[in-house]
Simulated scan of single mutants.
Amino acid sequence: MNIKAGVVGATGYAGAELVRLLTGHPQAELAAISSVSFTGQALSDIYPAYYHICDLVCGTQEEVVEKSDVVFAALPHGLSQELAKTCYDAGKVFIDLGADFRLENEDDYKEWYGGTYLYKELHEQAVYALPELFREQIRGKKIIANPGCYTTAVPLALAPALRKGYIAAEGIIADCKSGVTGAGRKLTQNTHYPELNEGFSAYKVAAHRHTPEMEQSLSHVAGGAPVKLTFVPHLLPVNRGILATCYAKLQKEASLQEIRQAYEEQYGDEPFIRLLPEGRVADIKNVRYSNYCDISLHMDPRTNTFIAISAIDNMVKGAAGQAIQNMNLAFGLDETCGLMLTPPAF
């Protein structure tokens, strides 16, 4: 199988990362790319690292749809629904790295993103595609909502403990740190180098748009019981990485070894989840440029608190790598195809 892949929004960070990974995929061919800001320019002129690797010229969205079997949309929220409709009508697989298809409840989308569902029938067809939790729902789907970085790291850190009923569904705290690429390529005041360097601060405290998405995933894991969490993101002065430190109260007596057994049962055969040995702590430097999610488990018996820490590369497992993982599932390929990337040791 040789899948023709197209990337809309190829000059943003997530789009450029998709290009990097797709050029090394043994069963996919990068057929077309587009960019509103750089139409008519070669991608290698914008990212010189891609010189003689990807010299494709940025065309239009229409050209990407026409030439591709699968279209990846690396666009801001609110810009994917029309494109999804075009792809669906043309029989193409559509994988959205934005937020337009992630929330099941339109009222939540209105509240957190200020938008509406333009094509309700497409939202009914869409699948929320976090493979390690919802794999069987993804296979063969045409409209795929690719989770973001925080919304991958937090549910993966907590899912086995929540599914087995070891932790309470209320009072969960997700204390997360992100590399600056998570803010996108467009410069803002808080990502300007003099503001970011030698600093470390929280942002959108208890008001980040990823909150309902994480609660939605974890509520499904909990069998429909509503899960509520407090989410506080922080901006790290590094390029890549998400570190999610998640705190939850035990709701039944259990040792760390018993909870660990639940993680081994659920994740033991997962190719991209590495459950770290007891005593080791997840670290973003050990997952850079890879599709791995490292998880370490801890307990504070004094306060009856379970602590799960996950680390991912926000541009790979938190964006482009996971999107390709979902492409593999949608087309019936080996899920790991093109993604067995070894993180650099230093």
Rank of each mutant, 00 (worst) to 15 (best):
Q61D: 07
L122P: 02
S68A: 09
Q81H: 07
A31M: 07
E104Y: 04
E66C: 13
T86P: 00
V65D: 04
D100E: 06
H77Y: 12
K92L: 10
C58T: 10
G98I: 04
S37V: 06
K67C: 09
E82G: 10
L75R: 10
K110P: 04
Q125N: 13
R20M: 05
Q27K: 15
D55A: 11
A90M: 09
G98M: 01
R20S: 05
A84G: 10
H77M: 12
Q81A: 06
F38N: 15
L122R: 12
D108G: 08
Y113M: 13
F72P: 00
A126K: 06
T23P: 01
E63K: 12
E106M: 10
K110S: 12
Y128L: 15
S37D: 04
Q125A: 09
E82N: 12
E82M: 06
G78H: 11
T116N: 05
T23R: 14
N105P: 01
V65T: 06
Y128T: 11
L103T: 02
L103P: 03
H52R: 13
E104M: 07
D100H: 12
L43M: 14
E104S: 11
E111F: 07
N105V: 13
K85I: 01
E111P: 01
Y88Q: 09
A31F: 07
S34F: 04
D96I: 00
A32H: 12
P48W: 09
L30R: 03
A49S: 05
W112Y: 03
S44C: 15
D55N: 15
T60S: 15
T60G: 11
F101M: 03
E106N: 04
E82W: 07
T23Q: 14
T39I: 07
T116W: 08
E63T: 14
A99Q: 02
L118I: 10
K120F: 09
K120W: 02
A32K: 14
L97D: 09
P48R: 11
A31Y: 08
G115F: 11
D100I: 10
G114K: 15
G98K: 02
D45M: 13
K92C: 10
I46N: 04
C54I: 07
S68P: 06
I53R: 15
A99E: 03
G78D: 12
L18K: 00
L18Y: 00
K92P: 01
Q27I: 01
G78L: 15
A49P: 00
D108W: 05
E63N: 14
F94L: 05
V64G: 00
E66P: 06
L56S: 08
V127C: 05
Y51F: 11
A32V: 08
S34P: 04
C58V: 12
V71G: 04
S34H: 01
A42L: 03
I95S: 01
P26Y: 04
E106G: 13
H25P: 11
S80A: 13
Y51K: 15
A42Q: 13
